[in-house]
């Protein structure tokens, strides 16, 4: 009867030994390989540091001009360029320029790494149902597991600093680009694929002449989502000692400074909007061919 009223759980000792066992072997693993892993990420750290310093050291008018130029190049919209310049000027005037540069650096590097890792994985997933079946649940875990949980092993291995922060951001931000690359390729019209086959396209030719170009709008939606999620993670990354707008928000939370919190929070929003609109408009321009329709 007790089986009915009480859950048949492990005994306390068993449970403690179970947890201790795993924690212990993880610690042994860190002792053995921690330094190797840290060294492996050294080049990444140097690159990120260099990129941050570059953004901060560049005189602000030049930086502003470069940002405006990039926004124009992506969106071809004067309105967006004007909006970008105004919001960057406000951010600077309110004393957040340097922090904004730190955040910009982290987001940019994280996005590039997500693209470099994510697109090839997405392509492989689209080619193999088995690989898709393995990767999909992993992506689900990455997106739903509370960020604090995977911060634990990251901190244990790498301590706190820029690289652990970057890795935390990447874990959270990479799934959309993987998913949408996979989806985009799988959605390509089978009639067109058949035509490519009929003309004797090799799998590689098919990928580059048909599948990737036609999947591009979806892939771009993935890049856009990845950027948004990376920006959303900067506050969590600040827990790992990443400086920037996120860290200021964290300070504001700890000391209940409403103005500081909102200022930095809205600065993140402004940067997010600039990224979002620019990448969306760029994505739309890529599919110019589908806009003009025979009447």
């Amino acid at each position: 009867m007790s089986l009915f009223t009480e859950f048949p759980e492990m005994t306390r000792t068993e449970l403690r030994d179970f947890k201790k066992g795993i924690d212990g072997s993880f610690k042994d693993f860190i002792h053995a390989y921690g330094e190797g892993i840290e060294n492996f990420f050294k080049p990444l750290l140097h690159f990120l540091k260099w990129f941050e310093d570059l953004l901060v050291a560049t005189p602000w008018p030049i930086m502003l001009a470069i940002i405006a130029l990039l926004v124009w190049g992506g969106s071809r919209s004067w309105g967006l360029v004007a909006g970008t310049i105004i919001s960057m000027l406000v951010i600077g005037y309110l004393g957040m320029w340097e922090d904004a540069m730190f955040t910009l650096a982290l987001t940019t590097v994280a996005t590039i790494i997500c693209i470099v890792i994510g697109i090839p994985i997405g392509i492989l997933m689209s080619k193999s149902d088995r690989f898709q079946a393995v990767i999909t649940p992993i992506l689900d875990i990455m997106q739903t597991i509370p960020a604090f949980v995977y911060l634990i092993p990251i901190v244990m291995i790498l301590g706190i600093g820029l690289v652990p922060g970057l890795i935390a951001v990447i874990i959270y931000a990479v799934p959309p680009i993987v998913r949408l690359t996979n989806l985009g390729i799988r959605l390509v019209d089978t009639d067109i694929l058949e035509a490519a086959d009929a003309f004797g396209a090799s799998p590689r030719q098919k990928l580059w002449t048909v599948q990737m170009p036609l999947a591009l709008p979806n892939i771009f939606a993935g890049v856009n989502q990845t950027i948004m999620m990376a920006l959303a993670m900067v506050v969590v990354a600040s827990l790992l000692g990443v400086h920037g707008l996120g860290l200021e928000v964290l300070k504001a939370v700890n000391s209940q400074y409403i103005t500081l919190g909102f200022m930095n929070g809205l600065a993140i929003v402004a940067i997010a909007i600039v990224f979002d609109r620019t990448s969306q408009k760029f994505g739309k321009r890529l599919q110019k061919h589908s806009e003009v329709i025979h009447g």
Binding site: I192, A195, A198, P213, L214, Q287, H289
Partner: peptide
């Protein structure tokens, strides 16, 4: 070389 009912041109 093949010609298709639904044309199957590359839209891009």
């Amino acid at each position: 070389a093949m010609v298709f009912q639904k044309f199957a041109l590359l839209p891009h």
